[in-house]
Computed example of a mutant assay.
Amino acid sequence: MPISFQDLLLSFEFVGNSVGQHQAILCRRTSKIYWHSDFSDLDEFNDELPDDIEDEANYVAIPDKRELGLGKPLVLDFARECLPDDFDDIRWMFSKRGAYKKFRALLIRRNVLDRWYDFESKATERALREWCELNSISVTD
């Protein structure tokens, strides 16, 4: 059964908000996405999980950014393409804590923040669609 790309993207963002504390699991048969958060007791973030949720033939966990190579590797791809003069500084930046805050400040100074968001959005869509294809998940819209 196909899944809406927008639902998949929303679940991907939920997982990425707190890596390791939020999970989204897709049922391959029904395309229902089960959300679970170790961080929240709110019912909207804690669906009742089926008893067979560990069955990989029926369920697959929605990946996070790192699993799809959308963290540091994506930043470095963007830097190579759009900020080649800043590449070494950005690479060094991402060897330390607080890299994204510094990176964002640099993007603002260079007036390329919107370009980064567009680059990241396109890469995310491409990576999620590839992940779906690899996992035999049909996507609508």
Rank of each mutant, 00 (worst) to 15 (best):
F14A: 03
D43M: 14
D85P: 08
K96E: 14
D88E: 15
I53T: 08
S136V: 15
D86E: 09
D47I: 03
D55G: 06
S95E: 03
P63Y: 03
P73N: 02
D7K: 08
N58L: 14
A123L: 01
L74I: 02
G71Q: 06
R129A: 04
K65A: 10
L10E: 12
K65V: 08
L83W: 02
N135M: 02
R80A: 15
S95Q: 10
K65T: 10
R97V: 12
I62L: 01
V139P: 08
A79L: 00
D47G: 03
N17L: 12
Y59D: 04
I62R: 01
T30P: 05
D85A: 12
N111L: 11
G20E: 02
D51R: 11
D38Y: 14
F14P: 12
K96T: 13
Y34E: 02
Q21C: 09
D51A: 12
L134Q: 11
L76S: 09
F94R: 00
A123R: 06
T30I: 04
G69H: 01
D64P: 10
E130I: 10
F12C: 04
F39M: 15
D85F: 03
D114T: 09
K96H: 10
V139H: 08
S40I: 04
D52G: 07
R126F: 13
V112M: 10
R109Y: 05
K32V: 08
P73C: 05
